[in-house]
Computed example of a mutant assay.
Amino acid sequence: MTESWRMAITATRHCLTGCAIGEITGMVLSTWWGWGNTANIVLSISLAFLFGYLLTYTGVRRMGADNRTAVQAALASDTVSILTMEIVDTLILLVVPGAMDATLTTTLFWWSLAVALAVAFVAAVPVNHWLMERGKGHAVVHKFHQEHAHHH
């Protein structure tokens, strides 16, 4: 496996973590607040973006970037990736019968979420790879990492 594909997988895994945290948090909160499906989807997607960006932002900050660079890197590297995942993920949850009505206590909820995230992961890896080939997406973070590696 080439370095760029490995990077794409790592980038996607990062994203997946953010998405999963966001969606589960969204589900927990919207269930707790008694919200409907639409509000739940909006909340989950917003949180998925938030956590996804946060993970990249934190990682880039740890490499020694300033605030502005870290924000730009997170936006550049994660937007398309999270978007791809959330679209695929939400579509699957809408397509699977009863998945949207399944609550946290049902096996169907966790099963459909796991399947949705797995498919979303597979869908997002080539997207991330394609972006990197063009020097966009996570290549931004990677480039930054290489430039600053010699400082430490």
Score class of each variant (00 low, 15 high):
2 T>C: 04
3 E>A: 14
4 S>N: 14
6 R>H: 05
8 A>T: 06
9 I>C: 14
10 T>K: 13
10 T>W: 06
11 A>W: 11
12 T>F: 03
13 R>G: 14
14 H>A: 04
14 H>K: 07
16 L>Q: 08
20 A>G: 11
24 I>T: 13
24 I>F: 12
25 T>S: 15
27 M>V: 14
29 L>K: 09
31 T>Y: 03
31 T>I: 04
34 G>R: 12
36 G>A: 10
40 N>F: 15
43 L>I: 06
43 L>G: 08
44 S>A: 15
45 I>R: 03
50 L>I: 11
52 G>F: 00
56 T>L: 11
59 G>D: 13
61 R>P: 00
62 R>K: 14
63 M>K: 10
64 G>V: 10
65 A>K: 08
66 D>A: 01
66 D>R: 06
69 T>P: 00
69 T>V: 11
69 T>R: 10
70 A>Q: 04
70 A>M: 02
70 A>C: 02
70 A>V: 02
72 Q>C: 05
74 A>C: 01
75 L>G: 00
78 D>T: 10
82 I>K: 02
83 L>H: 04
88 V>C: 11
89 D>Y: 07
91 L>F: 12
91 L>H: 06
92 I>P: 03
94 L>M: 13
94 L>K: 09
95 V>C: 04
95 V>D: 06
97 P>W: 05
97 P>V: 04
97 P>Y: 04
98 G>F: 11
103 T>L: 11
103 T>K: 15
107 T>W: 15
108 L>P: 00
108 L>I: 05
112 S>G: 01
113 L>F: 10
118 A>K: 01
122 V>A: 15
122 V>S: 11
125 V>K: 08
125 V>W: 12
126 P>N: 11
129 H>N: 08
129 H>K: 12
130 W>M: 13
130 W>D: 01
131 L>N: 02
133 E>I: 09
133 E>L: 14
134 R>C: 08
135 G>V: 02
138 H>W: 13
140 V>T: 12
140 V>Y: 10
142 H>K: 10
142 H>T: 08
145 H>Q: 14
148 H>Y: 13
148 H>K: 11
150 H>N: 03
150 H>V: 05
152 H>N: 06
